[in-house]
């Protein structure tokens, strides 16, 4: 797939219009995972708008986003940074052999208290 195709695909999957971003940074300002992220939420939006998808696909931040939707709630321009991050992560993990979590990773994590909801959420977010 060409860079351009990949870019269009991520834009389509995210369902959000990154051109509407006015670069105010409110999304990143509200993000609880900000300090864990190499590329910040507002930069996801901006880099995608610039077509710099290769940098996004290498980002470690896709594993730290909590899908808490605080960025979406705060954006004054109705952009959804969380949806951009998810579209990038889905693009990464949908490639053959690129899952961020495998079924065999799960049993050692299970303890007496861990809720099914946690295992299911992580597996859905990190595995395709």
């Amino acid at each position: 797939m060409t860079v351009k195709e990949q870019c269009e695909n991520v834009k389509r999957m995210s369902g959000t219009d990154v051109r509407k971003c006015m670069k105010c940074g409110k999304c990143s300002g509200r993000c609880p995972a900000f300090h864990e992220m190499d590329i910040k939420p507002h930069q996801f939006v901006s880099l995608l708008a610039q077509g710099r998808i290769e940098e996004l696909l290498k980002s470690e931040a896709i594993w730290s986003c909590l899908s808490c939707m605080a960025c979406v709630e705060r954006c004054p321009r109705a952009v959804a940074p969380a949806a951009v991050i998810e579209a990038v992560r889905d693009t990464v993990i949908r490639a053959q052999g690129a899952n961020g979590m495998k079924a065999e990773d799960i049993p050692p994590m299970v303890d007496e208290l861990i809720p099914q909801q946690l295992l299911m959420s992580a597996y859905r977010k990190y595995n395709k």
Partner: peptide, 13 residues
């Protein structure tokens, strides 16, 4: 946010 499912990747958060 409480840190959600990211604990399985990054327990510190």
């Amino acid at each position: 946010c409480c840190g959600a499912y990211v604990g399985l990747k990054n327990p510190d958060l």
